[in-house]
């Protein structure tokens, strides 16, 4: 496979698509898209091995802009779509992307249950506090009392904290990045993909059109006047998120409390980085494989169902036997 044939003209990423992006100028989506392209390249994955599922909204268009298997799904349902593909074809690298409304409002039930399942996939929430594509209504991450440009009154609802929700739901890798810190974001995406379980990465991003409260300047902390940005990296401060495979319950609880505590920080200092990585929790894929050792070889997607003549491969004799009305001994003695 030569570079000339597979890479977009004049671009260094295998995953780069020439399609014109219809996001607004200054949108954080660009930073996330760029980070995805770079990370997938850096991990030396091939476009045939990756499937990117998108929800509905501006962020949901991401799959169109990547040259890999791209699936634009339904509002709120991106996780079950992605989970189905992963369970049927575990060899596929599966990434789900969507907005904060998609994942935390209409899709909240799926988010909670995806955490429980702990299937090896990466879910990136594009968190900008508004529903951009429907013209700026408040989304679940907008804080109580905040009023963005299109709103007629301040928000009357408490916000949802995606990190603490993900923790209680059971996600085993939880992280937060910022759309304009591509270097850190690439590192976080790679960790999330490499994590052998359910990973939730929430990415703070400005919506330059509708969210005037949390714009680039706000994240840069210009209003604070202390020369520092609001965002800082947990890892830079020595925060250790890892719960090892053999960690006891006490250590696991300690790390959960640490994660919950870090997740509550907001305002002048906003943590980014990895909040928790819990390797001790059971994974659905492991359980399925334990119950049915043949499950991954071949996977459900690759399991042949017929021979070369098109005849079914299944053999139902024993299943039929169990339903047969024949009673061997009794029947022979019946007069």
């Amino acid at each position: 496979m030569s570079d000339k044939k597979t890479r977009s003209q004049g671009h260094d990423s295998l995953f780069h698509s020439d399609r014109v992006k219809d996001w607004c100028a200054g949108c954080g989506d660009f930073g996330i898209l760029r980070s995805l392209e770079k990370t997938l390249d850096r991990m030396q994955l091939l476009p045939d091995q990756v499937a990117v599922f998108g929800g509905i909204g501006c962020s949901g268009k991401t799959p169109y802009y990547l040259k890999t298997y791209g699936i634009h799904t339904l509002h709120g349902r991106v996780l079950p779509f992605a989970t189905g593909a992963k369970l049927a074809k575990p060899g596929l690298t599966v990434i789900a992307v969507g907005g904060d409304g998609d994942g935390l409002s209409i899709g909240a039930g799926h988010l909670v249950n995806a955490g429980r399942r702990n299937v090896d996939l990466t879910y990136i929430i594009f968190d900008n506090g508004v529903y951009g594509l429907t013209k700026g209504q408040a989304s679940p991450t907008l804080h109580y009392g905040e009023q963005t440009r299109a709103m007629s009154a301040p928000s009357m609802l408490e916000h949802i904290n995606p990190l603490s929700l993900a923790l209680t739901a059971g996600f085993t890798w939880i992280g937060r990045g910022y759309a304009y810190n591509v270097e850190q974001l690439c590192d976080l995406i790679e960790q999330a993909i490499r994590h052998p379980g359910s990973a939730l990465l929430t990415v703070l991003q400005p919506c330059p059109i509708y969210n005037q409260l949390h714009d680039k300047d706000w994240y840069a902390g210009k209003d604070l006047g202390n020369g520092k940005g609001r965002l800082y990296s947990l890892q830079d401060e020595g925060y250790d998120p890892v719960v090892q495979l053999d960690a006891g319950q006490a250590l696991q609880e300690e790390k959960m409390i640490q994660c919950l505590s870090a997740a509550q920080q907001w305002g002048t200092r906003i943590p980014t980085g990895v909040f928790i990585q819990d390797l001790s929790k059971p994974r659905l894929l492991d359980h399925i494989t334990q119950q049915h050792p043949g499950y991954t070889s071949p996977s459900p997607a690759e399991q042949p169902v017929c021979d070369k003549h098109g005849r079914p491969l299944s053999r139902l004799d024993t299943l039929f036997d169990a339903l047969s009305v024949h009673i061997p001994n009794a029947n022979s003695s019946q007069s």
Binding site: F53, I71, T73, L74, G76, R77, L79, P80, F81, A82, T83, G84, A85, K86, L87, A88, K89, L92, G109, H110, V112, N113, I288, Q291, H292, G294, Y295, S299, P300, A301, E302, Q303, V305, L313, S314
Partner: peptide, 26 residues
């Protein structure tokens, strides 16, 4: 063969998850 028979959170997930699996050829 080891078909995956999975109880999920609701019928929204049941149908969309089955779609996701169908796309892979299962």
């Amino acid at each position: 063969a080891a078909p995956v028979i999975l109880q999920v959170e609701d019928e929204l997930a049941a149908a969309t998850m089955a779609c996701g699996a169908a796309l892979t050829g299962a």
